[in-house]
Nucleic acid binder design. Structure first.
Length: 251
DNA sequence: AACTAAGGCAACCGCAGTTCG
DNA sequence: TCGAACTGCGGTTGCCTTAGT
């Protein structure tokens, strides 16, 4: 009845991925894409859960991933978006090309939190730490609200938050890229943009396999693979497949 | 040089929304 | 229409590395 179970949990391997597993997964996805993650481990010859494969691919093996720490500009965008969106890391990540939600989440927890605390800002509320009492008082536990209202309240930037955001931005902003997040009166535009899930470019990028040209642009990633000792991947097979930005040009 | 603590990151877990038989 | 599986997301954990003693 219904669908087949996700995976045989007794047989799946857990823990860190080996270079060999990475190689298999990359080779399989490059050649076949990932029509459905559940089928990937079986078809790729991996003793992993599909979920694990997806995570490994999206967080580590994807060719367009950036490496290294977030830049100051990226960090500031993360702070601004977090003030508006809260811990919705995937939404935040979608605005930072080459960064994953997991990466941003980790960076937030290990670096940005500390920075904000150092600046006297609560990383959760984005308010000044000595102004915490007013923030808790703003909640109205006795009121009855709909789910939509709860959602709106949860994610709507508070006035005080906007002040903090603006302060931080003015203090640290030296990069033109940061302008998008400095303008508080543009918050609504930013939110509107974030809520716009219809992103054809991204969809095309992921639905389409990748050309050699694109791979050459991802030199850092390829170097990483050489470190893995899997530089002998059959990247030539990728030739047969179109690439998103080429298609986009045509459109 | 050896040990310990802290930091950083990859990966897992579990939940919620969506999809499908 | 219902219920089970799939997918994606955020929270958490655990291991590895680095810094300090």
């Amino acid at each position: 009845m219904g669908r087949q179970p996700c995976c045989d949990k007794l047989k799946v391997k857990k823990g860190p991925w080996t270079a060999e597993e990475d190689k298999k997964l990359v080779a399989f996805i490059l050649n076949n894409g990932h029509c459905c993650w559940r089928a990937v481990p079986k078809l790729a010859g991996l003793l992993r859960c599909g979920k694990s494969c997806r995570l490994r691919w999206t967080n580590y093996l994807r060719p367009d991933l950036k490496r290294g720490l977030l830049t100051d500009a990226e960090e500031k965008i993360v702070i601004d978006l977090h003030a508006s969106l809260g811990n919705r890391w995937s939404k935040i990540a979608s605005k930072l090309p080459g960064r994953t939600d997991n990466e941003i989440k980790n960076h937030w927890n290990t670096h940005i939190k500390k920075k904000l605390l150092k600046m006297g800002i609560d990383p959760v509320t984005h308010k000044l730490l000595n102004d915490q009492t007013s923030s808790t008082a703003m909640a109205s536990p006795n009121s009855t609200v709909t789910d939509d209202e709860k959602f709106s309240k949860k994610h709507e930037p508070l006035d005080a938050e906007k002040v903090i955001i603006n302060t931080v931005s003015q203090e640290e902003s030296t990069n033109p890229q940061q302008n998008c997040s400095n303008a508080i009166d543009r918050d609504e535009q930013v939110i509107g943009c974030l809520w716009d899930d219809d992103m054809p470019f991204i969809d095309k990028l992921w639905s389409s396999p990748i050309s050699n040209e694109a791979w050459e642009r991802s030199s850092e990633w390829l170097l990483d693979y050489q470190e893995f000792g899997i530089g002998d991947l059959e990247l030539g097979r990728v030739e047969s497949i179109g690439f998103a930005d080429e298609q986009i040009k045509l459109n």
